[in-house]
Write a protein that binds this DNA or RNA. Structure first.
Lengths: 105, 105
DNA sequence: AAATCGGATGGCCGTTTGGCCAAGTTACCA
DNA sequence: TGGTAACTTGGCCAAACGGCCATCCGATTT
């Protein structure tokens, strides 16, 4: 594998990696229904706000969300709704796996 | 967030996490063009075979690939071609990001 | 001006990840 | 039957991750 190919897959992996966490996945799902500020998301997941802020920074770094400061709050929005396609695919994989496990019984 | 919702996102994250690595992403891409045995994949990436084997185990655990032993070789195949949809979406995110970065110049 | 609220950042710390090496297993070949 | 090729597994170790706390910053309130 040449350096160029490797760089390509590293770039892809960075984006996928940004979603590879239950909390961040929840945020993406939640943001697909509209903008949310940090304190709203913090209330939903029950983690420390600093932790939530860092998770959002990861999603932002990856280009998945964007933020907008209004007053003293920061609102996050999905930058690319196509992200939701991930879920469809993931669900398919999950169902396929369950199905083949059932066949073994 | 109740326990059930959390479990749902953890299950999704496990699958996405399995793809959140450049080498494993390369394998998925490669397997989308047909079955490959471990030694073929090992040659392509230039890592230790034990490392490759572990990466494949991660993909298998997640239900993304399946293996079949034939003779002394083990062949891996994609279990769910829809995985390739990930790439389309990832590319879109990358392009969107680059585009908005260019607007800043 | 002081206190408070919403967020971001730095530090700490236990856990996970990803690489290699070494060793074990199974199939094929001489 | 002994040897080698193809994998897998366990161990080890440095690096990355994900949580909390403490702290800092900027906007709002009092």
């Amino acid at each position: 594998m040449d350096a160029k190919t490797q760089a390509k897959f590293e770039a892809r992996a960075r984006i996928i990696k940004a979603m590879a966490h239950p909390t961040r996945l929840f945020f993406v799902d939640e943001l697909s229904r509209g903008e949310r500020c940090v304190c709203e998301l913090t209330d939903m997941v029950g983690l420390d706000m600093s932790t939530v802020s860092k998770h959002l920074a990861v999603l932002k770094e990856a280009g998945i969300v964007q933020d907008e400061k209004r007053g003293s709050q920061v609102y996050y929005t999905l930058r690319c709704p196509c992200v939701m396609n991930f879920f469809n695919c993931v669900e398919t994989i999950m169902r396929t796996k369950v199905k083949s496990q059932m066949e073994l019984v």
